[in-house]
Amino acid sequence: MAIASGAIVLLILLFLIWETLPILQIIGLARFFNDPAWHPTSEEFNLVPMLWGTLFVTVGSILIATPIGILSAVFCHYYAPKAIANLYRRAIELLAGIPSVVYGFWGLVVLVPIIGRIHPPGPSLLTGILILTLMILPTITLVADASLASVPSEYLRGCASCGLGRWATVRGVVFPAAKSGLITGVILATGRAIGETMAVLMVCGNVVQTPKDIFEPVRTLTANIALEMAYAVGNHRAALFVTGLVLMVMIIALVIAAELLNKGHIYEQ
C-alpha cells in the first residue's frame, strides 16, 4: 500500500510526460520559450509571459506575506496574552481553511472594484498579489509558530536575565535559533503560491502579456491550464500538459530545496 501511495507521484509524472511526449518530439521544448506569442490554435506556444506572470504574483505575495506571517507567529508567542494568542491561532487556522474559490469570489466582487477605482482596469497583478498574500499567510504563520515553539526555553530565560527587551530577544536570539523552520515555511508558501489556481484565475484578468506595472492584468501558468483545458485538443492540449510539467518541475525543485534545508522531514517539526 505504501508503494501504491508513493507510486502516485511517479504515475502523475509519467502521465504528464506521456501526454507531452508527442509535442516535445515534433516541435521541441525550445519553442515554448522563443515562439512569437501564445496562439496555441495556430501553433504558437510561447509560455514566457505566463512564466513571468507566475513569477511576479508569487514573488509579490511572498514579499508581503513573509514579514506579516512571521510577525504573526511572534505575536502569538511573545506579545499576546494567552487567550488572545489562542484566538488569533484559531483565526489563522480559519484563514487556512477557507477555499480558494471563496477567496477568488471575494476578490472578484470586493477587491477588484476597489483597485479598479484607484487605477483601472481592476483585475490585475496587484489584486492577485493581495489575495495570494492572504492565502499563503497561514502556511508561513503555522510553520513559524511550530518552529518558534521549539526554541529552547533556556535561551529565553538567558535573554530575560540579561535584561533584553522582547524585540531584542526576538530579533537577536529567537530568529537565528528558528531560522531553518522559518525558511521552510516560506518555501512551502512559495509552492502554494505557484500552484494556486482558482483565486488567481478569478482576480488577475488573464490577459497573456508580460506586465509593465502592477495594475496590468496577467495570466499565470495555472490559470492558463484552467482556462483553456475545456476546449483544447491535439497539440493545444499537449501544450497545456507542458505547462503542467513546468509547474511540476518547479514544485519538485522547491520540495528538494526544503528537504536539503531540513535534512529530512519538512512537515514534522
Binding site: G6, I8, E196, L247
Partner: peptide, 24 residues
C-alpha cells in the same frame, strides 16, 4: 523514498492533479 514522494505529492498544484485525473 515513500516519504520524499509524499512530500512532493503534498506540493503538487491542484490544477496538475486535474490534468492527471483528466488524462488517467
Amino acid at each position: 523514498l515513500v516519504r520524499l514522494s509524499l512530500d512532493v505529492l503534498a506540493g503538487v498544484p491542484s490544477i496538475v492533479f486535474g490534468l492527471f485525473g483528466n488524462a488517467f
